[in-house]
Design a protein around this nucleic acid. Sequence first.
DNA 1: AATACGGGGTG
DNA 2: CACCCAGTATT
Length: 363
Amino acid sequence: MEVKIDKNNKLKFAPALLKWHLSENKRQMPWKGEKDPYKIWLSEIILQQTRVEQGLNYYKNFINTFPDINQLAGADDGRVFKLWEGLGYYSRCKNLLLTARYIVKERSGKFPETYDEMLQLKGIGTYTAAAISSFAFNLPYAVVDGNVFRVIARVFGISKPIDTAEGKRFFTELADELLDKKKPGIYNQALMDFGAVICKPVSPLCQECIFRKKCYAYQHNKINELPVKLKIITVKKRVFNYLVLDYKNEILVHERLGKDIWQHLYEFCLFETKKLLKPEEVTNLALEKKILKAGKYVVITKLTPLKQLLSHQLITGQFIYIHLTTKPVLKENYILVRREQLKNYPFPKLINNAIKEIFVEKK
DNA sequence: AATACGGGGTG
DNA sequence: CACCCAGTATT
């Protein structure tokens, strides 16, 4: 059952929010007040499912390296992925490049200026299109991100789940009603700031909240009940057995392609199994597959298995460091990279952790 | 409509 | 440990 929303409360929402934003507490960020759609777009892609503090340095590095969309579009994929390394959700990086190149090629480098055109671009969904069109062009589209779901659900007592199509429609509609159509850009930033600074997911600062007297969740003691989320994510366990093959200080690596995690990042020779194998079992597998040749290798180190938690997977990584005594045959997209050059390739965090242990700690 | 996609911060 | 972050694409 839904709470009825007082129309008067809706009308007062935007002015109160803007007043709050004006007076205090607003967060300072390099893209705030920015009008260059390229910079806004870049910041929004980086910030998808990513905390401001985490994305900040990535944004600065990208802007320094690629001051405009032409430079980004002209860059090598590897260089861009290296800059993105560690930020996660790597399809964002792939789509960033696709879209940059599309805009440069098909639109002479000119960023679209309407919501609908932006929505067509790879990597831009409803949130990002609303953000760019309101920030850069002052178009009246309300952003609906995690902050907005939370603030609206609590203040207006909306118990519709936020992770269903119907719930999203409902929240988006309400968000558009609440939007200040004269100052959509400022308003959108104010709402997200408010969610991040005051109406936080855990332990929100209700004592300082301007909506305290009206807030449904606060008045009914349902701060921790709202917003409502239905789906429970399940975490799949996977075991990655890696052979780190070293021939005269050159390491065998390859780029991950296909539909799995870590697309376009690099890794060593992988044997995925259901259960953790003994190191001998991994080398036996490699012998069967003719990756290793009997008597032509020496096992140097076996790392204690490392864990890496992803949103839907728990990866256990076993790393076996092996010296080859004969030059390996390069299959598929494998390449040999000198030890000192490894740092120039983008790796998942799990692999970087292993690299640190194998090549640095050993000294 | 449901699921996959990273890594980090917080209580 | 559980939750969630300035979400999007794919199935």
